[in-house]
Design a protein around this nucleic acid. Structure first.
Lengths: 123, 123
DNA sequence: ATTATAAACAGTAATGATTACTATTTATAG
DNA sequence: CTATAAATAGTAATCATTACTGTTTATAAT
């Protein structure tokens, strides 16, 4: 893989994002670094970065794909009310039932659903 | 909500499916019961059944939405090689870190990734 | 340094899963 | 039996994502 300013910028934006932006949100942010970057380039580089394992995809409540640049062990809490995704830093466990079936887990993606503290207080 | 033959058929198909079909797969199966059912009707009823909590959505590896009619406690193992989803029946645990932050979990969706036994043996 | 080459790019067109729309049918209550 | 609003079939529209094309650029060999 050849180096490219565009891919570096996409990765930099994701590394510095505390939320879980979609491709077009990332596109808007990268445009502040490279104003004439193309949306297709953002998509292509997101795909490459994902394949390299440098970023991950977060399951969300809408139809768009959300990306994440924080590789630190954590899980996600998705608020049913405001749809905000909260990172909860902890090392998730793997149920023994998987190993019992001979299934070796390489990675995992967990989303917990509920109402976040902010929304609960606003009722 | 009024009763409808179409919704009953969609739910029946999902209840009797052991896999995790997409909307158009469900459409094909329901057509064997109601040949002239419309794809839009399938989508609308899947949405209603989901809102009622009678079915759930499974995160998968492709861009399509996969549905599930089995509400028994279980987790999913997604094979990175064949993309097959395996149901593993067990009661998943909730990390204490969530409660520590005051976040009350109402439901969860967990996917574990790895290579399934069949694919591992085929190498 | 210059050149060759293939990867990456910007810009645009195409795809396809899903949603919206509309005239008609149908479940249900009065 | 009738009124009415929800549900439907069929079709059109949406829009996130992917594919395409001619041009640019990183990198390695001359």
């Amino acid at each position: 893989m050849r180096s490219s300013k565009q891919r570096d910028a996409v990765l930099k934006v994701l590394r510095e994002s505390c939320d879980h932006p979609t491709a077009d949100m990332i596109y808007e942010r990268v445009k502040e670094i490279i104003p004439n970057i193309s949306l297709g380039t953002v998509y292509r580089n997101l795909g490459q970065l994902k394949d390299e394992g440098l970023i991950t995809i977060v399951e969300s409540s809408d139809t768009k794909v959300h990306y994440e640049g924080n590789l630190t062990d954590h899980i996600h809490f998705l608020c049913k009310s405001c749809c905000e995704i909260t990172d909860v830093f902890c090392t998730p466990t793997v149920p023994a039932a998987l190993a019992d079936l001979g299934l070796q887990v390489e990675s995992q993606k967990t989303v917990y659903y509920g109402v976040c503290n902010t929304c609960r207080d606003n009722i």
